[in-house]
């Protein structure tokens, strides 16, 4: 697969993943651009891999995780764009927006684990490979992330879990 073929067929999916991961359309665009520029420079190596897209996705995660260090002023904030809400699904949209805003408050590695697990559908082993850590660490991130989301809306849930 050439770089152009990859961009033509898989860039949409990479951008969607980046938007969910960053919770910020502009930041997602910046992160993916940075990653693709770097990926282009060594595409010959990436193309030989079994799953080039998985590698690019890993690059996106790493870029996102290091974004604060490199570009502190562009730390994404939870942005809820009013025009995205649909009046006929206001309640559902509000709940989703609230949930996404709370996800955005989680530490980045916890967010990355939740997105990789619940958006990309990766196993803990695959997430561990992406993040370069142990599976038990992944499960720890996921547990704490899910617990934090539940605690903020339902304090009594923590006692029952």
């Amino acid at each position: 697969m050439t770089f152009d073929e990859f961009a033509a067929t898989r860039l949409d999916a990479v951008l969607r993943f980046a938007v969910v991961l960053t919770n910020d359309k502009g930041l997602a665009e910046d992160v993916v651009q940075e990653v693709l520029i770097r990926a282009h420079q060594r595409w010959a190596q990436i193309a030989e891999m079994e799953h080039p897209e998985a590698y690019v996705r890993k690059m996106v995660v790493n870029e996102f995780l290091s974004w604060r260090r490199k570009w502190a002023r562009y730390v994404p904030q939870a942005e809820i764009e009013p025009e995205q809400r649909q009046p006929d699904h206001a309640e559902l949209q509000a709940e989703r927006s609230t949930l996404l805003a709370e996800v955005a408050k989680l530490p980045r590695r916890q967010r990355a684990v939740l997105v990789l697990r619940y958006y990309e559908g990766l196993s803990d082993a695959q997430i561990a490979e992406v993040l370069g850590c142990a599976e038990t660490t992944v499960r720890g991130y996921a547990f704490r992330g899910l617990a934090a989301l539940r605690i903020e809306l339902a304090p009594t849930m923590r006692e029952s879990t």
């Binding site: 993943f17 969910v20 764009e81 995205q84 989703r96 996404l100 996800v103």
Partner: peptide, 10 residues
């Protein structure tokens, strides 16, 4: 929620 957010991709 993640699936809905993904639709905002540029």
């Amino acid at each position: 929620a993640f699936a809905a957010k993904a639709t905002e991709a540029p």
